[in-house]
């Protein structure tokens, strides 16, 4: 694993941008590592990949990669990426986005891109809060969760991002935590394989924001917390119906992998006709 990480760093990382802006114990960097490993294992020509992002800690990732990158406005990564992909279908589009970026301000673009089944891979780094702006409540903050703008505990019901993506029509959907590197890499690879809209949610530690206010701790403790609060889809499905209904943990795994007409392909059929 260590050697592989070094190889990935040499091959894909933009040295001049180092050190990163990420806090100690932040999981965003792990997501970058897993994504680049998936790209590497798929042997995709990096010259033909465009990394697109919105605004947030997670959205800073494209800046650390030696490849084309488009760091857009808050919530709009998918909209910009739609233009990139539609104008040049030969490009592979990978999006890094946060929970606030993707499902708060950018929720409309998310559901429409899923509906269109446009060929792109969205990697949504869910840390349950707005990390970059100091840890405010987000559309995925668990009910009761403490943030700088939910000082009495969150009274809202969070989104299940994967359900949202599936309801809107995404054709590849999976959720993992940073504690499952191989599964995450596998999911990104399948997302890249899918000719359509792929949505991969990765539950990621944010010790400075969500961690601090909910006494989760740092480093190892946070990864443990992620494990404790999630359950594998296979295990969840094996539970008796009654227990399933009571289950509070977040279900992890691959939820969908199916085929459907892809938007840009259909679009260019009109152009070539």
């Amino acid at each position: 694993m260590f050697n592989k990480a070094r190889k990935i760093k040499e091959k894909y990382i933009q040295d001049e941008m180092w050190p990163s802006i990420f806090c100690v114990g932040c999981g965003v960097g792990n997501v970058l590592n897993y994504t680049l490993r998936a790209v590497d294992e798929k042997r995709i020509d990096i010259d033909k990949v465009v990394f697109v992002s919105g605004i947030g800690c997670s959205s800073r990732l494209p800046g650390y990669i030696d490849a084309d990158g488009l760091h857009t406005t808050h919530g709009r990564a998918i909209a910009f990426a739609t233009g990139v992909k539609a104008a040049d279908p030969d490009l592979h589009v990978i999006i890094f986005t946060g929970d606030g970026d993707a499902a708060g301000i950018g929720g409309n673009h998310l559901i429409h891109a899923a509906r269109r089944n446009i060929d792109m891979t969205v990697i949504c780094i869910n840390n349950f809060n707005y990390g970059m702006t100091g840890g405010q409540v987000s559309p995925t903050t668990p009910t009761g969760g403490f943030t700088t703008t939910s000082p009495y505990g969150n009274i809202e019901i969070p989104f299940d991002l994967c359900e949202l993506a599936m309801g809107a029509g995404a054709t590849y959907v999976a959720r993992w935590t940073v504690g499952y590197p191989y599964e995450t890499i596998q999911a990104v690879k399948r997302g890249l394989d899918n000719k359509g809209f792929s949505f991969i949610e990765i539950i990621t530690p944010c010790p400075t924001g969500y961690g601090k206010r909910n006494e989760i701790g740092e480093g190892k403790e946070y990864w443990e917390w992620c494990k404790k609060n999630t359950i594998l889809k296979s295990k969840y499905e094996a539970l008796p119906a009654k227990e399933r209904r009571k289950e509070k943990r977040i279900v992890m795994g691959e939820f969908r992998n199916r085929k459907r007409e892809e938007f840009v392909e259909e679009l260019w059929k009109l152009t070539k006709a």
Binding site: T73, T82, G83
Partner: peptide, 22 residues
């Protein structure tokens, strides 16, 4: 290529993205 986007924010974003794609 013509696309009707979901709103004007997206339209503006898409034309910027497409411009970088040439």
């Amino acid at each position: 290529v013509y696309i009707q986007m979901e709103d004007e924010i997206a339209s503006m974003g898409a034309i910027i993205g497409a411009s970088w794609a040439g």
